[in-house]
Write a protein that binds this DNA or RNA. Structure first.
Length: 260
DNA sequence: ATGCCGGGCGAAGCCCGA
């Protein structure tokens, strides 16, 4: 059971390369972020044609998440609970059958939060508090749970090529990292960090200033596993090569393999 | 350098991302 997360940075602009990568990697489940599409405009058909069921939670122009799955998607829930006034599409959850039992998968696009002295950062911190509260409830189900997505959090200095460049950034400020730790300590395993020591692996390289050429990346796309999911963990992978392709997203896919 | 690149929107130039 291969589960992926990929911030696609516009699904319509990236459809061809997304389909190409899906055919190569062949994940059973793929969480997408920044689809930048309303639900009715999402290009479902090309993805259904290669074997995926598709659920989306989009909005016009920005944000938006989706889950692709070769298996049925059940108990689909759109939106992060805890703030009825929040109109941004950043959370989508579904239950997917395993050979035995199920896995619950949540696709998240956590707010960027820059610049930090504005309400954008307040919104980010509040969103993280809501995610932590919701995740705590999901953990009580005591089932395999995977929360995958663009967390917009650099958890530690090892997660950036040049951590000193990020010290005043919403992705790396102490209050951001503190909330990420709180979430993890609620009862999750950071799957990629469990399986990689030292610097990286990075999942994002800015389009600007030759960041990709200089390998000046950060690790902000994460897959958190409940203990029941972590018990099934076989391997993790970051498909870095995708960043070097023409018209690439600024993020690359991150994957976990779970045994069944 | 409150920029550099790139997508969306909508039809030029601004908003947003990280």
């Amino acid at each position: 059971m291969l589960i992926a997360t990929f911030n696609i940075n516009g699904v319509k602009a990236r459809l061809e390369s997304l389909v190409s990568w899906l055919k190569d990697a062949n994940p059973d489940v793929c969480c997408l972020q920044e689809i930048k599409s309303q639900d009715e405009a999402f290009p479902k058909q090309p993805l259904e044609d290669i074997g995926y069921n598709v659920v989306t939670h989009g909005q016009k122009g920005f944000n938006g998440v989706a889950i692709l799955s070769k298996r049925p998607l059940e108990e689909v829930k759109r939106g992060l609970p805890g703030d009825d006034a929040d109109v941004q599409s950043r959370y989508l959850e579904a239950v997917i059958p395993l050979k035995k039992g199920v896995v619950r998968v949540a696709a998240i696009y956590l707010p960027n939060g820059n610049p930090p002295e504005t309400e954008k950062y307040t919104y980010k911190l509040a969103w993280m508090d809501r995610l932590c509260l919701h995740a705590r409830g999901l953990l009580e189900l005591e089932e395999p749970l995977v929360i995958a997505g663009d967390y917009n959090v650099i958890p530690t200095p090892d997660d950036a090529k040049r951590p000193e460049a990020w010290v005043n950034d919403a992705l790396f400020l102490p209050r951001t990292r503190e909330r990420f730790r709180t979430l993890v300590h609620t009862g999750f395993i950071d799957a990629v960090r469990l399986t990689h020591c030292g610097k990286g692996p990075f999942t994002f390289w800015d389009y600007q200033a030759g960041a990709w050429r200089r390998d000046d990346g950060i690790r902000i796309d994460h897959i958190l596993l409940s203990s029941q999911a972590a018990d099934l963990l076989v391997a993790t992978r970051v498909d870095k090569y995708v960043r070097g392709q023409d018209k690439a997203s600024d993020h690359v896919p991150v994957l976990v393999e779970l045994r069944e």
